[in-house]
Nucleic acid binder design. Structure first.
Lengths: 260, 260
DNA sequence: CGTGATGTTGATTATAATCAAGGTCTGTGG
DNA sequence: CCACAGACCTTGATTATAATCAACATCACG
């Protein structure tokens, strides 16, 4: 699985870094893993001894139980980083599995630590990546408990669309989604049958269009209002010094959910 | 709500820090908030401009929707830190509300940043705190989707017990839980009626004892096996240099869930 | 002593899981 | 080129589960 590919592609930690820092990160990569769908990259119980930078592909961070049920806690996609715990010990609490063919760059902990020590903005971007993942998982938590099946799917699709746009993986109308309905169900905590029926309803109501694995939104604003999508959920990385005073005012985002 | 209390108690960021670093943190506190149950400490949309150190009390990080439903994403308890995003901008995506009377120390971002810049271990402990919260929320995610109501409650009670023990808030047999059954339901994604019946079953089966707000476990090992509790979930903070080589072997924790 | 929050229980209803069957699509080998 | 297998999608019928509704009990507190 080890591939000493010399052709290093753009790697932007989901838009957090400028070209200079990207070059630094790229120079620190020790090797690139090539995985096919179903491959397990990290198993529960493994110790994180390196950071993983997703360069292409979708991965699932998931838990299987004895009864054959599975929960996908979150998705990693190009630009995401996981395992970047430089200064303390961590054993994986979840499996990380390739959903699509994937390329993952590996940076040894010591190398990344040295880089972060000398480049505070890189360290900040790693922190930001962790907080971002926390917010995504927290939002999934809300999805799983207080949203209807249709709204769960809508919010999830909005999440994917926003994240992909940040890394050039989606256009204005929609994106390619490499998940099966079973996997959507494992993300939303519902059965494949419920996913199928909810998607049918959403199509019938004209909210989304589905053509094979292509997803398109008919009216983004309407959908955002429906699921009370928080525009700050996927804010880009903004180093604290870049903020002008007027941006620092209290945001007036209203946390209300439109009932249907 | 501002109280310039000069009597600073032990603050240990859930066991992460030694006395020297605790003293540093305490010296950086600008003031202490005193809150009563129901008070909102942070509202969705607020910008995090300071770090909050919980010195006493339980807080809920939660989302309300228009339909009157609420999801408590996670609980903050003594020793926990939130809002410690030193180097980038973050708007709160959830409300943070006091469940019990609470004391929360506030450290200005600039002050904490200076402290972390000069004390790498303090910065590491802050990172660790974020990763720990991520893992707790991820586990709640699993709870909400693939565990039965009884197992959700058992896992949640185990979580509280482990976390409280790390900060001296629980004994070997059990602990005081300041949550109503409604709040347990808002954590587990089920109605108050379901919580009531599940707790009744757990008591009848002899797995837990409940006397008012006192929770006791009858057979911890049995309960841990039932919910496949991962012993690494609440590992203490271990700086990477402290690890001996034999501890760095791959953990053999088996990720299986006992069915009932 | 009364009021409001919380806990408890039975009856009914809503929702989604499960079961079952068939359809579509794609890649493979004869 | 066609037959077949396997993965995935779709739909109707039935069953399991938890939500909701309703009523009452208990407790703390002013």
């Amino acid at each position: 699985m080890l591939n000493a590919s010399p052709t290093i592609q753009i790697l932007n930690v989901a838009n957090a870094l400028d070209q200079e820092h990207i070059k630094l990160l790229e120079s620190a990569q020790s090797h690139v893993l090539q995985h096919k769908p179903g491959d397990m990259i990290v198993s529960t119980g493994d110790q994180f001894d390196a950071a993983y930078l997703v360069r292409s592909g979708w991965l699932a961070r998931q838990r299987d139980n004895y009864a054959g049920k599975r929960q996908i806690v979150n998705i990693f996609m190009p630009g995401d980083v996981f395992g970047a715990h430089l200064n303390f010990v961590r054993w994986a609490l979840f499996d990380i599995v390739a959903i699509t063919p994937s390329e993952i760059a590996v940076v040894n902990r010591e190398d990344l630590k040295r880089l972060c020590d000398n480049n505070p903005e890189l360290a900040s971007a790693m922190d930001w990546n962790t907080v971002r993942t926390l917010n995504i998982v927290s939002e999934h938590n809300v999805n799983l408990s207080i949203r209807s099946v249709k709204k769960r799917l809508l919010h999830l699709l909005l999440e994917f669309w926003h994240r992909l746009r940040m890394v050039g993986g989606a256009d204005d109308e929609g994106f390619h989604i490499p998940l099966t309905q079973l996997q959507l169900g494992e993300l939303c905590g519902v059965s494949i049958v419920s996913v199928n029926r909810a998607l049918k309803d959403l199509r019938r109501e004209g909210l989304i269009r589905l053509d094979g694995r292509r997803v398109e939104f008919s009216n983004i604003d309407q959908i955002k209002a429906l699921v009370s999508f928080n525009p700050h959920l996927f804010d880009s990385f903004k180093p604290i010094n870049d903020i002008s005073s007027n941006e620092r005012e209290r945001s007036l985002f209203a946390n209300s959910e439109v009932s249907r």
